[in-house]
Design a protein around this nucleic acid. Sequence first.
DNA 1: CTGGATTTTCAGTATATACTGAAAATCCAA
DNA 2: TTGGATTTTCAGTATATACTGAAAATCCAG
Lengths: 190, 190
Amino acid sequence: MNNLPATVQTFVLHFGEMGSRWGINRTVGQIYALLYLSDKPLNADELVETLRFSRSNVASGLKELVSMNLVMLKHMPADRKDYYHTHDDVWDIVRNLVEVRRRREVDPTLSMLEAVIAEQPHSEQEKQAQAKMNEMHGLIKMLTDWHSDMQKMETERLVNILKMGAKIYDLFQFRGKLKLKSQQMTEETS
Amino acid sequence: MNNLPATVQTFVLHFGEMGSRWGINRTVGQIYALLYLSDKPLNADELVETLRFSRSNVASGLKELVSMNLVMLKHMPADRKDYYHTHDDVWDIVRNLVEVRRRREVDPTLSMLEAVIAEQPHSEQEKQAQAKMNEMHGLIKMLTDWHSDMQKMETERLVNILKMGAKIYDLFQFRGKLKLKSQQMTEETS
DNA sequence: CTGGATTTTCAGTATATACTGAAAATCCAA
DNA sequence: TTGGATTTTCAGTATATACTGAAAATCCAG
């Protein structure tokens, strides 16, 4: 760790801390950060060397990162070691991050909500609770549908949309026309 | 807990589990879930009663939720107890959620990146690491700027935009014109 | 096959976090 | 003020999770 440039060290430590707020632990965060900054793939021993974790800790961290598709395995010619590297494009990284978390957290929640909403209520209280669950379901569904749409888009278009932000509406003065369109869509989806 | 309708119970337990993936712990998740579903504000004792946590655990959970602005305090006439309730509108909930997490996680990361990018590199390796940090910074900045824009919007417009998704572009055929606009914006912001 | 290089597994231990109960502090009606 | 109702604090304990080292499994060049 001391052998690293100061800036790199700061970055790696920061991601360690941040990781812990995300169900991803310190070790995993640091490994990822280091791989992200590295210009070449690193092997487990190099990670052990620089981060000073136990070999097995690094191994399981890498395993988790690979399972999240945040880190990929690569073999180097004339070397039996496994080398690891991240996606080069930052956009691919966020796409994956969002995708993984969606699968692990959002989708199960949606199923749970659907199951629970379908249930026959046994009391007034339950009925009104179900209404709230339904409301939440609608919102999450809307967000995930939107996300699916965005996920499909190539980076350049996505960036353009994001850059425009709220101006998307202001740019065009067809407020009424837009309203109409979006209402049609509401009817389709609900 | 057993006194709760089955659907409510499922929901509460699910949010307990999910909470733990979010830096929010099981207790806090369950408290929040219960308050969300309840049609009336609840006091700490009622929460202790239904969830079977210790009084102090509930207290600190509530404190955390209040600090996250996810739960609000309310007083009932002729009752000295503190009553707690969530926002009624689900959109307010997500707005707050995103806002809080942004303040706690994203903004500090941005500052860290800015500090570290500004540093004079001491090696080729460090220089190229800084380039990657810069790339990440650009992306996060873009997303947070977009978020600021969306945050300002009233719910109805936001919903319309989300509902339209990728169709925003397809609706209008002025691809060239749009491209132009967004390039101007790039120049402004970078 | 064999043996060295490498990764993976796993039981045990350490560390961090959640949770508790009891005691202290606060708050307000009388 | 005082005292009961209520909330908050905090030291100690339990629980969950991270981490380790050593041993087992895998892998492949010779």
